[in-house]
């Protein structure tokens, strides 16, 4: 079984933030980059599926410039066999359709049985790349999945809905699944895997055609604190905090 897992780098923004001169991105001085948590859950699901299948491989893909290699190496250290990067000038990182088109070039060259993505990137959370990629590939997508198991060419899994509703579903492979954050606890890779990840060759696949981008990030701004809320900090220790909370509860309930 061959599973392709899409991973992405996400940005954590510091409490104080400034933007680039064009106002369309956060100034890199105010961000910390890390691998998207849900994507690591997707990698873990993939590794378990391939272990159970007894043969096959887990291949990672990320759409991005050089910085995507960091996300790929970091995810490689969990144990996947290979990583590929997809990029061409003209890929719009803020447009999920453009990102999916870049990833699709690798889906075509790798012909996997299953493609996994994280349910959403933790920084911008559009929940779109998986569904678009499935539409481009012409296969079914199961969003917000967990507890994946494969039997022959059938994949069984659970999908989540709001309010804790869970639907057990089956889908024929190939398919795309977006894996819920917290679906599992991603493993720590072995020392050997970590060393291998550091040195791994990462091939670049160039998508041959990209869709037009129908959205443009025009401007970023610092969010007004809590939509006009102003923060009152309670000092004076736990007893003072508890007293204030108790007062607020009684105000609401009176």
């Amino acid at each position: 079984m061959k599973v392709l897992v899409c991973v992405t780098q996400v940005l954590e923004v510091s409490t104080y933030v400034e933007f680039t001169a064009d106002g369309r991105a956060v100034d890199p001085a105010f961000v910390t980059a890390l691998v998207n948590e849900a994507d690591l859950c997707a990698v873990e699901e993939a590794l378990v599926l391939v272990e159970h299948a007894g043969d096959g491989e887990v291949v990672l893909v990320s759409a991005g410039e050089g910085e995507a290699d960091e996300a790929l190496r970091s995810a490689l250290s969990l144990g996947p066999q290979r990583a590929v990067r997809a990029w061409a000038d003209g890929v719009v990182a803020s447009d999920p359709r453009s990102v999916a088109a870049a990833l699709m070039a690798v889906v075509e060259s790798e012909s996997p049985d299953l493609v996994l993505t994280g349910v959403q990137s933790s920084d911008t959370g559009a929940q779109s790349v998986g569904p678009v990629l499935a539409a481009m590939w012409g296969v079914a997508c199961v969003p917000v999945g967990r507890r994946l198991s494969a039997s022959g060419s059938t994949l069984a899994l659970e999908r989540e809905f709001e309010g804790g509703i869970v639907e057990r579903v089956e889908v024929d492979l190939p398919a795309v699944v977006t894996v819920q954050v917290g679906a599992n606890t991603p493993r720590y890779g072995s020392f050997k895997d970590k060393m291998r990840a550091k040195k791994a060759d990462i091939d670049v696949v160039v998508p041959s055609s990209l869709p037009p981008s129908r959205t443009t990030v025009a401007r970023l701004c610092v969010a007004l604190t809590g939509a006009g809320r102003s923060l009152e900090l309670i000092e004076g220790g736990p007893a003072a905090v508890a007293a204030r909370i108790a007062d607020l509860v009684r105000e609401v309930q009176s």
């Binding site: 999920p96 359709r97 569904p131 917000v144 809905f161 869709p211 959205t215």
Partner: peptide, 23 residues
């Protein structure tokens, strides 16, 4: 912006060439 809508919205956007903004 719910699980049910997100499950198909971006695919709809791709198939019909719509601009898509979620959340």
């Amino acid at each position: 912006f719910t699980i049910r809508s997100s499950a198909y919205a971006a695919a709809l956007g791709h198939l019909l060439d719509l601009g898509v903004v979620t959340d």
